[in-house]
């Protein structure tokens, strides 16, 4: 009987703890929005963070995008060839990248590269009392440290996703046109004719904006909520990648349903 009680007690504790964390994350999100004035008034703080989260992520984004585009070109060509429509390879590569792979893979890479860096940095700032020191200097750490990083992530994500899609298309072009020999005119003209600005490109940008908000909020919250120990920061960093990845994939499904339905 006692072990059964303990079992339910543990489940109850785990559920209430998760709800509590969700509430704390929501509270932090609203605090960020309220304290965001500083991030725009002193935009150099946000610019500095855009450099760290955006510019420093460029190498992994560009290299990954090029390979993803090449694989898409290769796989797409051999599938389309069976139906005699290999000229449609440009459309396939572009739509796959702009609608789905660009925003999703960028967000996953962003969570692994910039998200973990943000969590570790904030977690260590907390562990080394830098956030407390700021508070004692009458400086709000949410406005000075958290909000600029949040806006940097939100601004950087759509730009990175756009770069990912562009480089991916270039990768697809290299494989399909230069290596395999698909007609260059057909590759570009079919793409131009079938990729819609409103339904494909804008929806892709909306997705990456939402992913930017989700990824950066998760990374910041995990850092802010991390126990101030080496183990605490390491666990928080892992949680950032796991939670961000799951949230990105879940949100992608929800957003796609709405976008296709609309």
């Amino acid at each position: 009987m006692k072990s059964l009680t303990n079992f339910f007690e543990k489940i109850g504790y785990s559920v209430t703890r998760r709800i509590q964390r969700l509430g704390t994350a929501a509270r932090l999100f609203f605090l960020i929005l309220i304290s965001s004035g500083e991030s725009f008034k002193r935009f150099h703080l946000t610019m500095k963070e855009i450099y760290f989260t955006g510019v420093m992520s460029l190498v992994i984004i560009i290299v990954s995008a090029f390979f993803v585009g090449m694989v898409l070109g290769l796989q797409g060509y051999y599938t389309l060839q069976k139906y005699g429509s290999s000229e449609a390879i440009g459309v396939l590569v572009a739509l796959a990248l702009v609608r789905e792979l660009g925003p999703v893979v960028t967000a996953l890479l962003f969570a692994g590269r910039a998200g973990t860096a943000i969590t570790a940095e904030i977690g260590l700032m907390k562990a080394t009392e830098q956030l407390s020191a700021m508070e004692m200097m009458a400086v709000n750490p949410v406005g000075r440290i958290i909000a600029p990083r949040f806006w940097a992530g939100v601004i950087a994500m759509p730009i990175l996703a756009s770069i990912f899609s562009m480089v991916g298309i270039l990768g697809g072009y290299v494989v399909a046109v230069i290596v395999i020999g698909v007609d260059e005119g057909a590759f570009w003209s079919q793409m131009q004719a079938n990729v819609d600005f409103r339904y494909d490109i804008v929806n892709g940008v909306i997705k990456s904006l939402v992913f930017g908000v989700a990824c950066t909020t998760i990374a910041l919250f995990e850092g802010f909520d991390a126990p101030p120990t080496a183990e605490g920061v390491s666990r928080a960093t892992t949680r950032t990648v796991v939670t961000s990845s799951l949230v990105i994939l879940g949100l992608d499904f929800v957003l796609t349903s709405f976008m296709l339905g609309g």
Binding site: L124, M125, T128, E129, Q130, S132, A133, E135, M136, M137, A138
Partner: peptide
């Protein structure tokens, strides 16, 4: 707090 200055145990300098 603007009237206060605090020295933390390990300095807490912004790294």
């Amino acid at each position: 707090r603007r009237k206060m200055g605090m020295l933390f145990q390990h300095g807490a300098l912004f790294t």
